[in-house]
């Protein structure tokens, strides 16, 4: 029982990170119908930039946090401007390959700047672990949950309460109709890239203290995030959250009770199971017609 609770704690922690990454995928998918295979690399950049700013330049954590998020988002904007916008006849698969190219490119940049070493940073605060029913919960886990919670609530508020957020949703539902009612759809796409890569950076920052950060950490995280987004239903904010936590918890239980070498297999088995039984994800988003 105590053991299971411990697994659930670690699952919730990982799940929150998957959820943050999945939200990034969903945000972008909603506005552009694009899956960004370079998304994981933005997570990696977030983690490594934070390592540099906080540990090496010794900036205070909140400052390092915001500089990191804005730097990565800025790169996201550049990426959209230079690589995505410039394609003349975008077939979805072409855009996918471009993002694959970008992911290799960013990994190359990461390797060039940070080398092949792994870095680690201390937890955001040095409290002692909290013990609940015999299972210990790391303070960093709380930080992760709180930060993901705040980000998602902020996004929810943004989409439901602000005009810009509503304009973005209108664009996602029907680009032409939105343009006819005076919404600048290009700006909305840029904004989507900004928010999506920003969420990626946030995920990278919060994961930094509990993992080894290196230039190739992004790919698997990106795939898991994509997986979580699909589980919940691509394009749905709450679906991404549910998918992320589900994936994290199932994975943690699988690792705990079976074997850690099967960690990734469990994630993808879960995905196949959901796809077969409930195409469209748990929130049953209307199935996408692409390719």
């Amino acid at each position: 029982m105590q053991e299971a609770l411990q697994y659930v704690f670690s699952g919730i922690t990982n799940g929150a990170i998957y959820a943050a990454i999945a939200v990034g995928f969903s945000l972008l998918y909603n506005s552009t119908e694009l899956i960004n295979f370079a998304h994981g690399e933005f997570v990696m950049l977030g983690a490594l930039i934070l390592v540099t700013l906080w540990n090496i330049f010794k900036l205070p954590l909140p400052l390092a946090f915001f500089i990191t998020v804005f730097t990565v988002s800025g790169m996201g904007l550049l990426f959209e401007r230079l690589a995505i916008r410039t394609v003349s006849k975008p077939h979805p698969i072409v855009l996918v390959i471009i993002t694959v190219g970008a992911s290799i490119f960013f990994r190359g940049i990461g390797m060039l700047l940070w080398g092949k070493d792994s870095y680690s940073v201390p937890s955001f605060s040095d409290h002692a672990p909290i013990t609940i029913f015999g299972a210990s919960l790391l303070p960093q886990s709380l930080w992760i949950l709180v930060i993901v919670g705040i980000s998602v609530c902020a996004l929810h508020f943004f989409f439901k309460k602000t005009l810009t957020g509503k304009a973005m949703q209108a664009c996602a539902i029907n680009k032409r109709a939105a343009r006819l009612s005076g919404i600048h759809s290009e700006k909305m796409v840029l904004l989507a890239f900004f928010l999506s890569t920003g969420m990626g950076a946030v995920a990278g920052i919060i994961i930094a203290p509990i993992t080894m950060c290196s230039y190739n950490m992004g790919t698997m995280l990106g795939l898991k995030g994509f997986c979580a987004a699909m589980l919940g239903g691509l394009g749905s904010l709450w679906g991404s959250l549910i998918g992320g936590f589900l994936l994290g918890i199932v994975e943690a239980l699988g690792v705990g009770f079976f074997s850690s070498s099967l960690k990734d297999a469990i994630a993808f088995l879960l995905l196949l199971l959901i796809l077969y039984m409930r195409p469209g994800g748990i929130m049953r988003v209307k199935e996408v017609k692409r390719f």
């Binding site: 899956i35 795939l223 997986c227 993808f268 088995l269 195409p279 469209g280 199935e287 996408v288 390719f291």
Partner: peptide, 25 residues
């Protein structure tokens, strides 16, 4: 193959991952 678009992509990707892990483990 009942799936389409990104769901098909992800389904096949998941299958590939699982087979790869079987090779490894």
């Amino acid at each position: 193959l009942k799936l389409s678009g990104y769901y098909l992509g992800m389904g096949t990707l998941g299958f590939g991952m699982i087979v790869h892990i079987i090779f490894r483990e």
